[in-house]
Amino acid sequence: MTHTLHRQGSEESLAGDFTILAMPSSGLNSAGSLPKLAKALDIFLKYDPVNIGDSKGGSRFSLGSDEAVKGILVDNELVHAVYRTKEQLVNVLVDLKDADLGLSVTIGGLVGSLEDCCRSASVKPHTIVQSLGVMGKMEKLPDPRVLEVATMCGHHLVSFDLIRELARKVAKKKLSGEKAGKKLARCCICGVFNPARAAEIIEEIAARMA
C-alpha cells in the first residue's frame, strides 16, 4: 500500500512533486481495461511528465523510452506519471474526466494542493490516505536529504548508498545533477520516482559536500 504516499521533504520541496495513477479494480472492472490504461497513459504524456511507468513492467527510465512503457501494458494493472506543477496535474484531471474511462484515479502530493487541483478540475475527492510518518528505530535512518530522494521510490529500490555515491560525483563535477537523477530513476521499476526533484536535492547535498 501507499507506494506514492510517504515522500519526505519540506513543504517547499514537496510543492513540486505530484503523482497520479490510474487503474481498474481487479475482477470488478479489469477485464478489457487495456485500451483504457493506454488512453490514460496518452493523457499523462500530453502534459510533459517527468516520469511515467506501469506496475508490472517498468518505467521510462528502467525500460529506456515511453514507447517501451506503452508496449508492455496489460489488463489489470496501474499506470503512473509524475509532474512538477499543479497546472499540469489539473490539465490531466480535466482530460481524464472528459475521457470518462471508468478507471479509478489517485493523485499524490501536498493535501492542500491536491484539493485545489480537484476544485479546479471539478472532480470530487472520494477517499484519502494520510501518512503518520516513520516510527521505531529512527537512528537507523540516513541523512534527511538522502531520505527525501530515497522515499520517491515507494518500493525503496533506490539505495541510500547510490544516492550518496552520485552526490559525491556531482560534488566532484564528474556528473550533473540531472544525470544523477536519471540514473537513480532507473532503479525505480514503476515510474513514480521524480528525477527532476531528485536532481535538485542531490545538487544541494553535493554543494554541502564541496
Partner: peptide, 27 residues
C-alpha cells in the same frame, strides 16, 4: 484526519486522494 487532529497526533502534509472517477463497469 479529524480524529488525529483532535488527539494531537502528528500527520504529514502530503497525502494521496482517490478522486472518484472509477466506475464499476468500464463504459
Amino acid at each position: 484526519e479529524a480524529l488525529l487532529y483532535g488527539a494531537d497526533i502528528y500527520y504529514r502534509p502530503n497525502a494521496k486522494i482517490n478522486i472518484g472517477l472509477g466506475k464499476p463497469l468500464i463504459p
